[in-house]
């Protein structure tokens, strides 16, 4: 089931967001979001169009996970952060290539694509955005 095995269609339909940071922009109030909603959470407009969000941002808040859910236990400790992208859009993402003790609020990060959820040795490898300190 879901805790042990990532649903394939459920991951597949999120690929535009997870591979390319495709979100939504409300054509009426300008609010940007990920994932794209059918109805703008700010103004209720139904006129929300897909948009590719910027790949850089900074860490607003973070936590280091020592007790992971199923399917993530091999990766502990790992960092979950709220990221604010350059255009102000916020999302929750895992940080990678960083020592948990080196993470700071305001740290500049960029999107990379990494393995996020792997279903055993025979199942799907679900890749998704993660963020890492800027290289250059």
């Amino acid at each position: 089931m879901w805790a042990y095995w990532q649903s394939v269609p459920a991951h597949w339909r999120e690929i535009p967001a997870r591979y390319r940071l495709e979100g939504g922009e409300c054509q009426d109030c300008g609010y940007r979001m990920i994932p794209r909603e059918d109805i703008c959470p700010k103004c209720g407009s139904r006129n929300v169009k897909p948009i590719n969000l910027p790949r850089k941002g900074n860490v607003v808040n973070y936590t280091v996970i020592w007790n992971a859910p199923r399917g993530y236990e091999y990766y502990t400790p790992y960092v979950i952060a709220i990221i604010e992208l350059e255009d102000g859009t916020r999302l929750t993402a895992q940080l990678t290539d960083v020592e948990p003790s080196d993470v700071k609020e305001g740290m500049e990060v960029e999107m990379v694509l990494r393995k996020t959820r792997v279903s055993g040795e025979s199942g799907l490898i679900a890749y998704s955005y993660k963020f890492r300190p800027l290289i250059k």
Binding site: Y74, Y75, T96, D97, V112, L113, R114, K115, T116, I125, Y127, K130
Partner: peptide, 13 residues
């Protein structure tokens, strides 16, 4: 390679 890296993630970057 890190725990979350493989040929695809390397090829991507």
């Amino acid at each position: 390679p890190g725990l979350d890296e493989d040929t695809f993630t390397i090829a991507y970057e």
